[in-house]
């Protein structure tokens, strides 16, 4: 059962510059599957990513835009990309600044389709 999730995570980490990839239980904010470089703790990442997605979902709902398809945050030292799969599941990727964001977005979309 977990192999399906592990395979999805492995596919995301094959994109250059990805430091951490997780499948997250979006309701409980806990890790379902993950692959992270040393020094990245997936538990807080999963919890905060699920919380952020829930809040942005509310914001977009207020704006009348419907649920988010992809959430992308750009920071000084890298990017965070979140792809909601369903109300229960979320795919998360943490990258450095050099990542090909188009490729990453395709990888997350592909991951979501495999998990649907």
């Amino acid at each position: 059962m977990s192999n399906r999730y592990d395979a999805v995570v492995a596919a995301i980490t094959r994109v250059g510059g990805v430091r951490s990839a997780c499948v997250v239980d979006a309701i409980d904010g806990i890790v379902v599957a993950e692959s992270s470089m040393v020094g990245t703790d997936p538990a807080p990442l999963a919890a905060l990513a699920a919380s952020l997605t829930r809040k942005l979902d509310g914001l977009l709902s207020v704006a009348g835009h419907g649920p988010p398809r992809v959430i992308h945050l750009e920071a000084e030292l890298g990017h965070l990309m979140l792809k909601p799969v369903s109300p229960e599941l979320l795919v998360v990727a943490v990258t450095d600044t050099e990542t090909n964001l188009g490729l990453l977005r395709l990888a997350l979309t592909d991951a979501a389709e495999r998990l649907e």
Binding site: V24, D25, I27, D28, G29, I30, V31, A43, P44, A46, A47, L48, A50, S51, R54
Partner: peptide, 12 residues
């Protein structure tokens, strides 16, 4: 209004 993951992270 919160989640198990958040509660666990901040509990640690």
């Amino acid at each position: 209004d919160t989640s198990l993951g958040l509660v666990q992270v901040f509990f640690h």
